[in-house]
Amino acid sequence: MALQAIAFYLMAAATIASAIAVVSARNPVHSVLFLIASFFSAAGLFVLLGAEFLAMLLVVVYVGAVAVLFLFVVMMLDVDFAELRQGFARYMPLGGLIAGGLAVEMVIVSTTVATKGAARLSEAPMASGSAGPSVPNAEAIGGVLYTDYVYFFQAAGMVLLVAMIGAIVLTLRHKPGVRRQVIMDQVLRTPKSGMRMAQPKPGEGIDL
């Protein structure tokens, strides 16, 4: 359908343009905002593929959570990007090599999926496009994720858990002598325990 083609070219162009803007923007906060725009247009491409579940996950996880943390860090740290940029020419070959490798991998993966179907997923309605999926793709993904790939899924979860615990262990410090909020005391406070009626005489204070 013509509308889908228009939508595809619009979103693909937006994805690439904002991806270029991420690395070329002068202001780091603008870079992050362009990164978010790039994520968002990529989610749009997923919708066009008929993978609406993945699209929503992309928005919820990357745009809604990961990029917010990015933005936090970039806004609060005073990163001098002009200084970082000085090594640009020196790192260019290495960066280009990695980007080229990734591009080749992506082409291989996508052609394999297109011609042979990826493993058992070939009959899954992921890439059925305009024909309309017979099974909602949330169910399709759940069906393989919790059966065939359950161990990988659990392992990925464990990796994230370990990373989280590691970050907490690295940053957690128990400083002695800090007065903390004890919520239980605050909740259990009653007018009787928290209030005292005093009758100060004129010219005198009261002892607390």
Binding site: V29, L33, I36, F40, E52, F53, M56, L57, V59, V60, V63, G64, A65, V68, L71, M75, P136, N137, A138
Partner: peptide, 25 residues
């Protein structure tokens, strides 16, 4: 009437934070 309607709402509401954070910055 999308299949992932509730996720769509969740995604949109999770993006709502950007309006505020961009305005503040």
């Amino acid at each position: 009437n999308i299949n992932v309607g509730i996720l769509y709402l969740f995604a949109v509401s999770s993006m709502g934070v950007y309006g505020i954070i961009m305005g503040g910055w």
